[in-house]
Design a binder for these strands. Sequence first.
DNA 1: TATAGTTCTTAAGGTTTTCTTAAGCTTTCT
DNA 2: AGAAAGCTTAAGAAAACCTTAAGAACTATA
Lengths: 221, 221
Amino acid sequence: MRILLVEDDRPLSDALALSLKNANYAVDCVYTGADAMTTLSIGQTDIVVLDLGLPDTDGLNVLKSIRKKNATLPVLILTARDKVSDKISGLDAGADDYLPKPFEIDELLARLRVLERRLGTASQTIITIKNVSLDTAHHTLTIDNKTIHLPRRELMVLKALIENAGRVLSKNQLENKLYEWGEEVASNTIEVHVSHLRKKMPDNFIKTIRGVGYCISKSGE
Amino acid sequence: MRILLVEDDRPLSDALALSLKNANYAVDCVYTGADAMTTLSIGQTDIVVLDLGLPDTDGLNVLKSIRKKNATLPVLILTARDKVSDKISGLDAGADDYLPKPFEIDELLARLRVLERRLGTASQTIITIKNVSLDTAHHTLTIDNKTIHLPRRELMVLKALIENAGRVLSKNQLENKLYEWGEEVASNTIEVHVSHLRKKMPDNFIKTIRGVGYCISKSGE
DNA sequence: TATAGTTCTTAAGGTTTTCTTAAGCTTTCT
DNA sequence: AGAAAGCTTAAGAAAACCTTAAGAACTATA
């Protein structure tokens, strides 16, 4: 799950980014509305966390631009303004949620989970397909009542595939879910992780679609 | 657009219903969780506005029942509880939004609009786990009927973990529970405390989940 | 206020796990 | 058969975590 964090206050941005990373999100930080739009045009963002008090433009304008191009991308607004009227205009401009500062990071995380869940990419902590269930909080995979531990990256790959069950994800898309900017990887890492995963999972659970990518079918078969 | 309003306080319910009707919603009013479920089974409801303080059951249970039957029906929670933890448990139980009382009707309406738009597209003093029990009031730890003294910080770590048994707490979260503002710590303190704690506790009582944090399972194993 | 006894934080070094890379092998398609 | 794509494996590098010990910072007591 990849989050675009638009927050001009560096210390706050850094702290948030850290917490988000700890919660296993990939985070791209930008500090201006213009940069936000540029990043969004690349199309890798799953959720936007947007501070309204930006230096270059009013955050609300950024929000409106986002909405013009993408009607469904989840946007969570973050702001010091706490008048009810601000809230209302934010929500009406197309935000999916609104969190007034100061807030507790745990609440932000909870609200993000709501947005994530809504993405269809059901991201409760436990995701189940057939006899396989993945506990993303405890990093464990349970198959037929046997529980094993999964390392971070393998978990991320499996999670992405399960969340998108029925759809094919290319290696590139998977890489984008695993790695942030400037952290790109230049080898067959994904293949390796998939290989490791397969050893731990039922046969043929992760299918390869040659020339396209990987896929887990919704029914598990 | 048809709203199910679940609110047991008659005057409030009447007032809300009126405002909602003025805002062009169809409103079904019920005053108990049981009635709510009955109404929902008819399947005409678009959005649920749910008060958590109901006479017959805890609103959270109603919410969970709703979620079992319908994963996507938008639910907005309304409640007097305003602790962040309440919010989080509400959101995690499947609510789409959360509005603490008292609120302004206009904000409720704005939040309803968001949901609408989307439609288009431990508190006990003594906690015991297995042979370990922690008396949070007296700051003592008892293992197999032997009482052990714990230094303050170790106790805080253990308490946090035990109170959240079954959940994984990151080092960061633990730090947040231990240190106040301006008291932040810049080293591996948590690791050290955990290390010390482990010497005093049953083997494998505190598990580490690499890349995530620490966890004590509810059963102790 | 001095002193002794705890307790806390840091930091360094050691251990274990996890990640990436790269090379060679296998499958699939033309 | 040959080429391209994918799979597997192993090894070194990197990251995360654990342990220990030393000194700083408390606390209690005289």
